[in-house]
Computed example of a mutant assay.
Amino acid sequence: MSEKRQLDDVKRVVVKVGTSTLIHANGQINLHALDQLCFVLSGLVNEGKQVVLVSSGAIGVGMGQVGLSTRPDEIPAQQALASIGQGLLMTIYQQRFSTYGQKISQVLLTHDVLDYPTSKQNVFNTLDTLLKWGVIPIINENDTIAVDELDHHTKFGDNDQLSAIVADIVDADLLIMLSDIDGFFNKNPQKHKDAKLIAEINKIDADVVKKAGGKGSKFGTGGMMTKLKAAKRILKHDRMMVLANGADPAVIFKIMHGDKIGTLFRKK
């Protein structure tokens, strides 16, 4: 049996789930995955952990509600879909978490809120209090008002960045980033059958960026570069991050118990 990762001291954890985990390819909500996620996170709280959930999926849920199969390019349409989807997503979270006796809250953020020390402190105070009460805050970007076309910078860019920023705000020990990939590979696994999973990365340098495919490739701009950017922030603040496949959210239990799943980002 392979040696386990030493994550016993992890007390406060941020879990980020992508749309691919929560939404089926046909646009419908993946109720099994969402239920598993709620079960696992409730179980972590029962173990004495403090958990923050950064959840994508609002626009995807909205698309399913209005029967769209393709995400629209128009900003107003995306905002409208987020408005439709966020409420339904939170309703389902409330239903499933309540099954396990777990209290939750909703926090919607925009980047400009965190640019001001007073409002940033208010966010920390709120999240810190919720965690001490054993509540799981569910965080998403406020997509109905956050647009990068505005003169003032309101948008985080994606929930990968948001999850790393939230990990900083709450002083988390670990960020678990669940996606549709098994971790970080030495080359694009979609193109190379001999691609190998890298179990641990200690710094984000030019070689790591090159392995991700670089900024000019579809692989790099399709999601891995944003994850590396998040990992870079995590390492800068001496935290840990695990990138793993979220097809079965029960993998979170295994990660927390030290199983070598996905890629661990941490300083040596």
Rank of each mutant, 00 (worst) to 15 (best):
N140W: 01
L127F: 04
T154N: 10
N140Y: 09
T144Q: 04
K155A: 13
D148I: 10
D160V: 08
I136N: 02
G157W: 02
N140V: 06
D151V: 14
I136T: 05
L130N: 08
N140G: 13
D160P: 00
H152R: 10
I145R: 02
D128Y: 06
D148K: 14
V135S: 07
D143G: 08
H153G: 08
Q161V: 13
K155P: 00
F124R: 09
N159K: 01
N159M: 02
D158C: 07
Q161L: 11
G157K: 11
V135P: 01
N125V: 08
D148Q: 06
F124K: 15
F124A: 11
I136V: 15
A146M: 02
V135Q: 05
D160S: 11
L130W: 09
D143T: 03
N125H: 11
I139M: 09
V147L: 02
G157R: 10
N142L: 04
N140A: 11
H153T: 13
D158L: 05
D160M: 11
P137Y: 06
V135N: 07
V147G: 09
D148M: 10
H153N: 12
T154H: 10
F124I: 03
E149A: 13
G134N: 14
T144S: 15
L150M: 14
N140R: 04
F124W: 12
T144L: 06
K132I: 01
V147D: 07
F124S: 12
N125S: 14
F156M: 12
N159R: 02
V147P: 02
L150N: 14
K155R: 10
I138M: 11
I139T: 06
L131M: 07
E141M: 01
D128L: 03
D160N: 13
D128E: 10
D158W: 00
N125M: 09
L127I: 11
I138G: 06
H153R: 15
Q161S: 15
L130K: 00
W133G: 03
